[in-house]
Simulated assay, not measured.
Amino acid sequence: MSAVGTASRRAPSAGLARIQARVGRLAFSAAVLLCYLLIFLPVLFVVLISFFRAEMVSFPPDGFSLRWYANAWSHGDFLKSLLTSLQVATLSTIVGVIAGTLAAFGLRRSNIRFKPLFNMLFLGPLLLPGVVGGAAIYMGYFRAEAALDRDITGSLWGLVAAHIMLTIPWSVRLVMASLAQFNPATEEAAADLGASGWTIFRRITLPALRPGIVAACMFSFIASFENLEISMFLVGPGRSTLPVAMLSYLEYRMDPTLAAVATAQILLVGVLMLVTDRYVKLSRVV
């Protein structure tokens, strides 16, 4: 009789535990769904507004149209600034990824003193507010122009050099993540079998670093392409990046044209991330 009573008391407690576990899972799923809504809801609104027919945004809309995409395409400043952004992002990505990969490789493999300090210095630009960094670079360029008697602010190479300061930290972080998963014993085994240093790097090390390098290229390109804070200090007459051109357009007009341009940017970045994830699983390095 005592055993039966004990079993009857355990059954409700086990059922209560299952109910609590189920409620916990539902609460966690609801919290995750809420986070996704907070992240993607502004993006969805931007995409939706780009199809509004009226110039003044109002809810509910009085119709839908593609006129703002046509207006953005016919706006010469947007196309010109888009080409400049693509050029700057490509150059800064190439230089930044190469330099960041070498820096990450050196930091991971060397035994230099104050290694944590160098890690902090390489990642520092990601922690610095963009406006502060842009103002600091602008003042540094201004002093350099006075010393060298050469125009730096407003030049293409000056803008690329500033964007490289953004791409190097991303490259260091992502390549070091790949290096953390790499076992150096494979290189030692290849050396014991007679492989040369170049063969080891080309056949073993480089393929192991490929996920980090590809992810670094993607994130560096996006960080440079969408940068506003640094670019607005350094663009010159007749040359502007796409985010700066969008900000300038907003000073005089407020219509869904900017939403159409932003939607095109979102589409470009989304395609870039999908293509990158198709060949390199970003979850392995991010």
Results as ranks from 00 to 15, higher is better:
Val275Lys: 09
Gly63Phe: 06
Pro129Asn: 07
Ala27Val: 08
Val175Glu: 03
Thr205Cys: 05
Ser224Pro: 01
Met139Cys: 00
Ser283Met: 04
Gly134Cys: 01
Met165Ala: 13
Met56Ser: 12
Ile230Tyr: 02
Val32Lys: 04
Leu37Ser: 12
Trp170Lys: 09
Ala14Ile: 14
Pro207Thr: 04
Val4Glu: 14
Pro207Gly: 05
Leu126Tyr: 11
Pro12Arg: 15
Glu145Lys: 03
Arg109Lys: 15
Thr276Glu: 04
Leu86Tyr: 02
Gly270Phe: 08
Phe28Glu: 04
Pro60Arg: 03
Gly133Glu: 02
Leu128Ser: 00
Leu66Thr: 14
Thr84Lys: 00
Val23Asp: 02
Leu121Ile: 15
Ala260Met: 14
Ile204Ala: 08
Arg109Asp: 13
Val32Arg: 07
Trp198Tyr: 11
Val280His: 01
Phe201Trp: 15
Thr241Asp: 03
Val214Asn: 11
Gly63Glu: 09
Ser50Asn: 06
Ser231Arg: 00
Ser81Ile: 04
Asn111Asp: 14
Met165Val: 13
Met232Gly: 00
Gly106Lys: 06
Glu229Ile: 08
Pro125Ala: 02
Ala264Trp: 09
Ala190Asn: 07
Lys115Tyr: 07
Gln181Tyr: 08
Ala147Asp: 03
Ala185Pro: 06
Phe142Trp: 12
Phe40Val: 07
Ile112Asn: 12
Met165Asp: 03
Trp157Leu: 08
Val46Pro: 04
Val95Ala: 13
Gln265Phe: 05
Leu91Pro: 00
Met273Phe: 14
Val244Thr: 03
Thr205Pro: 03
Asp255Arg: 04
Val23Phe: 07
Leu34Gln: 14
Asn183Val: 10
Ser74Met: 13
Val271Asp: 07
Phe105Ser: 15
Val269Ala: 13
Ser196Asn: 09
Ser110Gly: 14
Met232Asn: 00
